[in-house]
């Protein structure tokens, strides 16, 4: 009997690509791109004279160069643009040194700061990037330059990977986790450990005890929020505040972070996962301009 296996891949989030059909890239002076090869997802962003033109957002495979190429191909799809038409490509993210067509690799912290500045405007002061396998708290100035930062990539607690593990354990689709975690009458005590492995065994125990899925998810989202708030507080939070990365799409975690900080996060106007690649594309443009000036 044929079974629909995708419906059982609870961790699988929606991949997407987009381009602006009203923009003619051929008229642009500088076509720049940023490719963010993360631990879980890869994005390619193409900008024409600093304006967002096209992007793609997909899962990272086991082969970093291939993931970068796939993301780029998908962003280019339907645009009539070829890789050679892009003047400068910057690679960022975990796999940044493995983007074969990138002229330069830039750390994801600088790119996220710059990208958040583009997405949320110059009032943004504090950015929390909740990525696939790490968590970054960044303070930025009005130009998108990093003022201070703190990154936790030693452990997967408070990251997308942790959430994927939970979605799988509970059999709840990852895009539904956030909403479902809010369907509790009152907040349960948080799971005591955010370490994904420990939290998973703790959650299994709670399920056996008879806790409904909603309550277990609430307990985990709460623990995750609490953990990243700790990181943010170490850095100091100043409004405006925004969250980027995949977890920014999880209302269960976002609302609990907001509650604990007593600060509202700005509502994103773009896909929160492409912030790093946007920053990369903006740096690519700036670097090319700098190069041209020297000549």
């Amino acid at each position: 009997m044929a079974e629909d296996t995708t419906s059982k891949e609870y961790w699988r989030w929606t991949e997407s690509n987009w381009h602006d059909p009203d923009m003619d890239w051929r008229e642009g002076d500088i076509v720049s791109a940023g490719v963010d090869v993360g631990s879980v997802s890869s994005q390619a962003v193409i900008m024409v004279d600093g304006k967002l033109y096209a992007y793609s957002n997909m899962r990272t495979g086991s082969d970093s160069p291939k993931s970068a190429e796939n993301a780029m191909d998908w962003a280019l799809e339907g645009t009539g643009m070829a890789l050679d038409d892009i003047h400068y490509v910057v690679g960022t993210g975990y796999g940044r040194v493995n983007v074969p067509f990138a002229k330069r690799a830039i750390t994801e912290i600088a790119c996220h700061a710059r990208g958040a500045n583009f997405m949320y405007g110059p009032t943004i002061k504090t950015v929390l990037d909740m990525g696939g396998q790490d968590c970054k708290a960044i303070r930025v100035d009005q130009k998108g330059k990093v003022v201070s930062f703190l990154m936790n990539d030693k452990c997967a607690a408070g990251t997308g990977r942790g959430m994927e593990v939970f979605a799988d354990l509970l059999g709840v689709h990852i895009t539904k986790v956030g909403e479902m975690s809010l369907q509790v009458d009152e907040e349960p005590p948080m799971v005591s450990s955010t370490c994904v492995v420990f939290a998973k065994s703790e959650a299994s125990a709670l399920l056996r005890e008879g806790w409904p899925k909603e309550k277990v998810l609430a307990a985990y989202c709460l623990a995750m929020a609490h953990r990243v708030v700790g990181l943010l507080e170490r850095l100091g939070i100043e409004e405006d505040f925004a969250i980027t990365g995949g977890i920014a799409k999880n209302i269960g975690v976002v609302s609990r972070i907001e509650k604990e900080l007593e600060i509202k996060a700005l509502t994103p106007s773009l896909d929160t996962q492409i912030a790093g690649a946007i920053g990369g594309a903006l740096f690519a443009r700036a670097l090319l301009q700098k190069e041209r000036k020297k000549k």
Partner: peptide
């Protein structure tokens, strides 16, 4: 800029 290198764990 203050750059913080390191981590937080259990």
């Amino acid at each position: 800029m203050i750059a913080n290198y390191g981590y937080k764990d259990g």
